[in-house]
Design a protein around this nucleic acid. Sequence first.
RNA 1: GGCUGGGUAGCUCAGCUGGUGAGAGCGCACGACUCAUAAUCGUGAGGUCGCGGGUUCGAUCCCCGCCCCAGCUACCA
Length: 518
Amino acid sequence: MSDPAPFFLTTAIDYANGEPHLGHAFEKIGADVIARYQRQAGRAVHFLIGMDEHGQKVAQTAEARGVAPHALVDEIAASFRAMWARLGISYDQFIRTTTAEHQEGVRALIARIFERSPDDFYEKAYEGWYCVGCEAFKNDAELVDGKCPLHPTRELQWTRETNWFFRLSRYQPFLERLLRERPAFCQPESRRNEILGLLAQGLEDVSASRSRFSWGVPFPRPTSDGETQTTYVWFDALPNYLTATGFPAAGYEARWPAQLHVIGKDITRFHCVIWPAMLEAAGLPLPERVWAHGFVQLGGERFSKSAGVKLELGEAIDRFGPDAFRYFLLREVPFDGDGNFSWERFEERYTADLANALGNLASRTVAMVEKYCDGRVPAASDAAVLAADAADLAAYHAAMDGSRGYLLHEGLAALWQVVFRANAYVQERQPWSLSKDPARRDELEAVLGTLVRQLAPVAVALAPFMPAKAQELWESLGGAGRAEDVRFAAVAALDPTGWRVHKGAGLFPRPEPPRPAA
RNA sequence: GGCUGGGUAGCUCAGCUGGUGAGAGCGCACGACUCAUAAUCGUGAGGUCGCGGGUUCGAUCCCCGCCCCAGCUACCA
């Protein structure tokens, strides 16, 4: 067999300026499902996540708290990693932009652009109103009565600063061709349309360095007056995907280019415009695809710390456990658009989908195999039912494998069709009636054999979403080893005949125990 | 303002290039069953398919106008 095809996927690196929240979690969970799915599809997956730890805000926060920036970002990175461990995020690599390796990679990338495309960096004086309070330039649209709305008591200063600029405008034709010839480069389609609209307006050059803060990567070339500036955000943050491969050290080509960048829709522009232009300027291959997911809103509103619109991640995870939380987010929030988190929907979905539909199906199936077949899975099955399931499993893969994008919510919906069919099948065949008639023993065994053959593929297909619960289900059916180690290609040949089922504690206990009738 | 997408049952949404009675899940009501986690299965609700025109034998799906919502309109990472 040939070597498995590589699948290098990344998420946006998270800005080290606060604790992980629901938005961070949604992206990591979605990317984790894709990573786990691709592993089971047989790809050689490398899953990268990490932290963006430079920039003015980090330095300011550290100062305000009276700690060194390094100490601050160490603490925040630890907090993120703890959260990802709790959510079962199966990343292979965790990159931090403050490491020496990343910084050297950034400088090498910039040096390479200077070398390959010498005209792409140039010095330019930037003039504008500078707010000392924000430590940032303000454009006219941001001003209120000629003052910074955040610091109205301070006078704005008309300031002139010379920076390195990147000639992004030069790449407009290149980018237009890229999006036209490779529509999958920027997905979903709605985001690609936005980028096409942006390109139609014309691109302006962007600054690549700043002189007013130092918590960052020193720009490799001093300005003509001898000043060494600090690399500006996109030239520091975006290259993490590349520096994670070891670039520029030999061997990075084994991993680069990435197959997939999973990002939030708010940073589509940086990933679908600036990043490919940078890579092209450096003469490096482009990633295969950028997937921009939407946002999880709370009660129909966007997060807002100031308005108190936020969710305690830990509380949500504790409600029904990490797997149920993963399931809920990806079932309820379409991965190509926005969705909503509410406690009410969470409990509804948990009860209806997990406890009643799937959990109870597993429970009744295992109980009947124990009761009627001494716990051994019979050899017989119903081909018509399994054929119908096969169509749903195909729909699951079509939603998951990237061929139509990454429609994780549709993948789950397809899987639940199998669950619904199995429950209806039980009702239709009534194995408890069959069990009373010895002459119908064959029928009884076929029904129970079918149910296990319906659930086993569900356990395998569910493993990317709910790794721990899928394993519990797999073991209760009597499957050997780990569900997540079962390749999708091997599912069709799976033969549960003779498996020994185990009645477990119950996959998804109901939220409130039933009360005895009064 | 411009561009993109959307307004379909109480909620979340499917409805491919126009055509027999407009769908799914959840929730709700009633019925059935008892293997199972008081779970499951079936049936139902009578939704102006945003509003007004138009094209057509016929439009939720095409065209025009209008109303409403969301996103984008580049230095926050």
